[in-house]
Nucleic acid binder design. Structure first.
Length: 523
RNA sequence: GAGAGCAUAGCUCAGUCGGUAGAGCAACGCCCUUUUAAGGCGUGGGUCCUGGGUUCGAGUCCCAGUGCUCUCACCA
């Protein structure tokens, strides 16, 4: 600790009423003077968590008073409410399990300690020892016989008050504050904690499912010379000692396929990828992607796996096979899920017949006929235009789980072609609650074809498409050593968490979403 | 990247036609020994986002900037 920090309590004593923080510093100094420095505490031996006492109090209520008051429960947590009532004070102590009301009487602890307890601020951490009882108003409560402060909050946290109906008054609702200062969001808002926990359960359930299915959990490089495996612009960085530029990965695909080539038959990675694109309620520049590859499996095997895996995750996270989307209940156990070829969906929802989409000119004419809401000028390929129609017209209708199949091959440079129609890729995407929740291929394993696909992409790049896939000679060479037929899947985990938690924005399921630096961040 | 909106006490928010900056909660003081959005009386607390401009006078009107939100465009 610096000398400057040591002087702060003294400054507070000189200006004791200047502000709330100074008052708290003064209280801290008082505690230190009384040899009860909260920051000297290192360890707390809790016998119960807050919510456990609530249960125990009811269980012990039948005991004779004398026996029950001889019990000693120890718990600790943040003080989230206090109600001083003359010579007795009630306080709420909250930990991760919930909250417990504690009750301190002056006659029990003596005047000095009673006054000290009364001086504790909202946000402080206390350890309390006592026995359970139920108040006249019926609330399980810990009757405190001993306590001490174990950490001091120097700032007043935005802790709201909850009324009988569970409505929180006050608290923290400003979205910028919630995202920028997530610690305040989490300590003030129980729903924020619930979403965090659910998101973690999504990831752990997925890992458990894949581990149990025999997939190997691996890690591959984030820093890459060329960022491939997806259509996106990368972030650039630089290695000083080796003096060359690097890119942050935009997908996991190419390295995982090398593991397949190396003889690993079932492999997956859950990792952060980075795409240098816009920010929205559905996009964050860094997000968590899961990709898996299974040798000897085809597209239908992956569909089967997706149905089983998503059902498992939903059951683990929500405790049932259903989840809420708006006022609808979506049941993931109704297998097999709907399968809809992309062109069929466009016929159904955009009213354009597949025969009208055979050439770029015909497709543009058809789009003009139905007055599409997007800019036709920016579309350079027929496949791109078809995908656009799908996103604009079909996707908003895909509430129940749906596999969209038969993607245009020119937007799928890493997927096999259909044997019976070389314009279509052996690829599907999963849609649930109108969100794209997965993208799968029968992976292209023909190195000669792969080179041609990359060359087409390089041409699109030369024509101005900054997101077209770059040539990756090393990858093509790796494939020339022989890659088994393989099914692959990629899933944006933030989106999956978004849907399963019913969150409004991807920022609700990303703990620290990207924010522009504000004035306080620049020092 | 484009358009619209928002920015006032620690938190949630009012602020009329341009005329001394307001409430609830939180904080501080007093009263209250089973309260619970505890209650009662009293007190303190402001870079009205930043910088210019108009005006006798700006939280309010004008211009520029910053951040956030929403919609659109690109992306998952």
């Amino acid at each position: 600790m610096s000398q400057e920090e040591h002087t702060e309590p003294d400054l507070a004593l000189q200006h004791p009423e200047s502000d709330a923080r100074a008052q708290r510093l003064r209280k801290l100094a008082d505690l230190r003077t009384a040899n009860r420095d909260p920051f000297s505490v290192e360890r707390v031996e809790r016998s119960h968590r807050a919510a456990d006492i609530t249960n125990s109090a009811a269980a012990h209520w039948a005991m004779p008073d004398a026996d029950r008051s001889a019990l000693r429960f120890v718990t600790a947590g943040r003080i989230t409410a206090h109600r001083l009532k003359g010579k007795v004070v009630f306080a709420d102590i909250s930990d991760e399990s919930g909250r417990i009301q504690v009750y301190v009487r002056r006659d029990d602890v003596g005047e000095d300690l009673f006054n000290e307890f009364c001086a504790y601020d909202l946000g402080d951490y206390a350890e309390v020892t006592g026995y359970p009882f139920i108040t006249r108003t019926g609330e399980p409560t810990l009757h405190v016989v001993d306590f001490h402060l174990i950490s001091k909050a120097l700032r007043s946290a935005p802790i709201g008050k909850t009324d009988d109906e569970g409505v929180v008054h006050g608290g923290l609702s400003d979205l910028e504050m919630r995202y920028r200062y997530r610690h305040l969001d989490l300590l003030a808002n129980q729903p924020a904690r619930d979403v965090l926990i659910k998101r973690c359960k999504v990831v752990s359930a997925m890992r458990r499912f894949l581990d149990d299915a025999g997939f190997l959990d691996v890690e591959t490089p984030v820093l890459q010379v060329e960022a491939g495996g997806a259509a996106a612009r990368p972030f650039l960085t630089h290695h000083n000692a080796l003096n060359y530029d690097l890119k942050l990965r935009i997908s996991l695909e190419l390295f995982l396929k090398r593991l397949i080539i190396g003889g690993i038959e079932k492999v997956y990675e859950i990792g952060r990828v980075f795409r240098n694109e816009g920010v929205s309620t559905r996009h964050n520049p860094e997000f968590t992607l899961m990709e898996l590859y299974q040798a000897y499996a085809n597209l239908e095997d992956i569909m089967d796996l997706v149905e089983k895996m998503y059902l498992f995750i939903c059951q683990q996270v929500n405790g049932s096979s259903t989840f809420q989307f708006g006022d609808k209940s979506i049941d993931l156990s109704l297998c097999p899920w709907r399968r809809l070829p992309m062109l069929e969906g466009i016929r159904q929802y955009a009213g354009i017949d597949p025969d009208e989409l055979r050439t770029m000119e015909m497709a543009v004419a058809a789009c003009k006929r139905i007055n599409v809401s997007f800019n036709l000028e920016t579309e350079t390929t027929l496949g791109g235009l078809i995908e656009k129609l799908h996103e604009q017209y079909t996707q908003p209708n895909l509430i129940e789980p749906t596999f969209i199949t038969d993607f245009p091959v020119e937007t799928s440079p890493l997927a096999k072609r259909r044997q019976d129609n070389s314009n279509l890729a052996r690829r599907f995407e999963i849609y649930i609650a109108c969100q794209e929740l997965g993208n799968a291929f029968s992976e292209l394993n023909d190195p000669l074809e792969q080179r041609l696909r990359f060359e087409e992409q390089v041409q699109q790049r030369a024509a101005g498409d900054a997101e077209a896939h770059p040539m990756d000679e090393d990858f093509v060479e790796a494939m020339e050593y022989g890659m088994p037929p393989t099914g692959g899947l990629g899933v944006g985990l933030d989106r999956l968490a978004l849907v399963l938690t019913g969150a409004d924005s991807i920022r609700d399921v990303i703990l620290f979403p990207l924010m522009r630096p504000n004035r306080r961040s620049i020092t």
